[in-house]
């Protein structure tokens, strides 16, 4: 038996209170508890985290491969969703 049989986990770390968990990398572990322990040893040796999430890579559903996919096109053509779309006279304060 080798680590071939250990599933791949993706690791997310919250670096401090008030911030989101952020993806930091992956590791292999025999089970969920071992994945959390290994994640602590590999990814938080210097106080990089106050909380860790691990999730089996196989359980992640992702958008299609290409990051410039038409899947995201609907968000690109609506400039009026951005505050800079609107002209406001320079002398209007606090806006």
């Amino acid at each position: 038996m080798s680590t071939h049989d250990w599933p791949l986990y993706e690791v997310f770390v919250r670096s401090k209170r008030g911030l989101n968990h952020v993806h930091v990398g992956s590791l292999h572990a025999a089970d969920d508890a071992m994945a959390v322990h290994n994640a602590r040893d590999v990814y938080t040796r210097r106080n990089e985290g106050v909380s860790i999430w691990v999730v089996k890579a196989a359980d992640i559903t992702a958008s299609s491969p290409d990051e410039k996919d038409p899947f995201f096109a609907p968000s690109a053509d609506k400039v009026y969703r951005h505050p800079t779309f609107y002209d406001i006279p320079d002398d209007v304060p606090h806006m």
């Binding site: 080798s2 680590t3 071939h4 791949l8 990398g25 992956s26 590791l27 292999h28 040893d41 590999v42 040796r45």
Partner: peptide, 26 residues
């Protein structure tokens, strides 16, 4: 000890990066 443990950690970050290209670290 801390330094040698770091080297192990660096190896693991890199195997993790290599695996994203479709190879298996074992």
């Amino acid at each position: 000890l801390a330094k040698v443990q770091d080297e192990a950690g660096h190896g693991l970050y890199l195997y993790s990066a290599a695996e994203t290209l479709g190879v298996d670290r074992a």
